[in-house]
Amino acid sequence: MIGDVAQSIINGIDLKVESGEFVAIIGRSGAGKSTLLYLLSLLEYPDGGTVSIDNNEITYYNDAKITDYRLNNFGFVFQEYALLPELNSWENVAVPLKMQGYGKKDAYRYSKQALEQVDLGKKLINLPSQLSGGEQQRVSIARAIAHKPKIIFADEPTASLDSMRACEIFNIFLKLNREGQTIIMVTHEKEFAEMTHRVVELNDGKIISDRRIEPSSTNLCNKFNIV
């Protein structure tokens, strides 16, 4: 709905993502990239159509069930880090783990492991205000992966970062994907998109291209000496 007028933002989309894929959704502003991501991640309800995961149609689960489903199956990385300012790094990562029922020790252990995966093992007790933008985004990624989700949804995770930090973050996603993690990412940076397995381009709410690609052998981050 835009004002009182119902407008179709996404229409006629049929997208199937395989386990272990790294899918980049690209398109101009207003193309419907983020809306598609929100629909896939159950943050938005479609007016029509369905979302199925592992052959289970989950579109019309009730709120509580959807929240549970997101908790146990999805990881989210938002554009603006989205860390709770009063929680330090490991505590931010531990929140979903605790919600899943992990005790304090286990929550700490898994949070630490996740933070070490994103090279923040030495900043476990730093508050977000004591971290750089790139570090905050890495905490956000650690939070998304700590509970081993089936799918990570990332909404322009590098948009607020400079090129070097953006590369660092993107490399983490590549590393996670190499370990088998399914990732669906919205990005406006085509160079990064070309380094994934598949690029889905939207325009006016429709898929205008869906390319499976060989990830670019030229790592754009090489110029920053980031491996």
């Binding site: 943050l43 509580a64 929240t67 549970d68 489903y69 997101r70 908790l71 146990n72 999805f74 990881g75 989210f76 938002f78 989205a82 709770l84 300012p85 929140v95 979903p96 919600m99 939070r143 998304a144």
Partner: peptide
Amino acid sequence: KKYIGILKGIGIKGGA
């Protein structure tokens, strides 16, 4: 509000 939304987004129940 935004943080509350994010908490809900990552699966934290409103009750918590």
